[in-house]
Design a protein around this nucleic acid. Structure first.
Lengths: 242, 242
DNA sequence: TAAAGGTCATATGTCATACGTTTAATATAT
DNA sequence: ATATATTAAACGTATGACATATGACCTTTA
């Protein structure tokens, strides 16, 4: 009969976090700005330091702020980037809620479209950057750098497509594949030799959308196919070892 | 000359969080399991309660655990779901790092492929669920429920596609569009009348991949087109109000 | 005078202790 | 047997003290 609603006792630290979030979202604090110091927040919210600290810790963990220590320290609002999305993908994968196959499938759906959009948007500056990246793909550097080089074309295309969400997805998956590759200990030069991107780059520079899309599809089909095979073997070996 | 390495002073709370993360990832604690209580963690790590609590708070904020109070309380490992991805998308959007147009574009790329994959995988059980959802779309319920009903077909297709990553993306965007819709205060019945999914559902049930893909593309093109128009108007009005 | 080192102020990081709150299980009273 | 009260375990909050990091400024010295 009575129509009372159960009042949800929200934790003080969450309430503080929520208000700070809101302040960040509505632009009160922009990227790079410093949130008030702990002492000030204590004053404003009239809570203990524990509460303030836990609230900020939460914001840090969810990637909204970065905490710096020292005289000029404090909680600084971070520029939200795809890094966070990337982190989520990594977590999902490592918890086993995401298979390598699924990642490959997703790339195979998203990246050809990205290549298409990139072909549409390609201007002179991008053309130069692309051929540059394609050219220096073979530069010999220390280990982690070579991978970056090899991924450069994909990253550029992602940036060129004009859609930050798709770009973020693409880069996240790219990075994840890179990390997995590292675990598998594959020889990059062997499975992803130089020059594989040439066809794609040419098509994009020529503003040929259809060709760009198809070239990317071909490239991924081949490359990811090989990788999946390797990954499968790896799993089987791992199983026999256990 | 000297070959000293800068020692990175990692915060105790971060170190604890990192170890707990690792334990979750390597399967020591699975979804639903309870992490040791604060007291126990204090003992294990030999740190103060503050440190332990901040570490756990971080895990909670990044969606890895859920904290419950009370006699049987503690930090329980959460089943990682698309919720987290969804949260990231929401944040990015509300901070303005993601435009409505980009979201629509992404849906337009991903969902037709999902429909195609769903058509491939559709068996009797899914068929029944689909036609069921399509049928009850018009059930009149309280506000938030109607939206869920209207989204049901999209969700089902996402689940059917067999790729959890794509499903997660699709659901995240779907949910986000729903929330934006709420802000825009649109009349669901007006812009998304009953029966719009019929063609898609029929094609999927008939295992007709091409048709399913095309039907989804048509549906989204139309629906999202209308929404984008509304959203644009909203922005302009908002600007004049300020 | 410029570079190295010292001092200080400030902000975050950690510790220890006490008490409050929530929740489930158990005991008790009616 | 039902309703109520008690208890215990776990998290939540408050507070004060001390540790550590870091930039700014001052001081010494070559």
């Amino acid at each position: 009969m009575e129509n009372f609603k159960p009042l949800k006792q929200i934790k003080a630290s969450d309430a503080v976090a929520q208000q700070l979030r809101a302040a960040i979202f509505d632009g009160t604090y922009r990227a790079g700005d410093k949130l008030p110091s702990e002492r000030e927040l204590i004053e404003s919210f009239q809570v203990s330091r524990t509460v303030v600290r836990e609230a900020i810790k939460g914001l840090e963990a969810s990637g909204l702020v970065q905490i710096k220590q020292g005289a000029t320290g404090g909680a600084f609002v971070k520029l939200l980037t795809f890094e966070r999305l990337s982190g989520v993908c990594r977590d999902l994968f490592f918890v086993g809620r995401l298979s390598f196959k699924e990642i490959c499938e997703a790339r195979l759906i998203v990246e050809p479209q990205i290549a298409r959009m990139a072909a549409l948007n390609c201007d002179e500056m991008y053309s130069k950057a692309l051929s540059d990246a394609d050219l220096h793909e073979s530069d010999t550097l220390e280990y982690p750098e070579t991978v970056v080089l090899r991924q450069k074309v994909h990253c550029l295309l992602a940036d060129m497509c004009g859609n930050r969400f798709l770009a973020a997805i693409s880069k996240s998956l790219l990075q994840l594949v890179g990390e997995i590759n590292e675990v598998l200990d594959t020889d990059t030069d062997l499975i992803h030799p130089i020059g594989l991107h040439k066809e794609i780059v040419d098509a994009v520079i020529a503003n040929d959308q259809d060709k760009a899309e198809q070239a990317m599809r071909n490239h991924l089909t081949e490359f990811l196919g090989i990788l999946q095979k390797i990954e499968q073997d790896f799993r089987e070996n791992e199983r026999t070892l256990i």
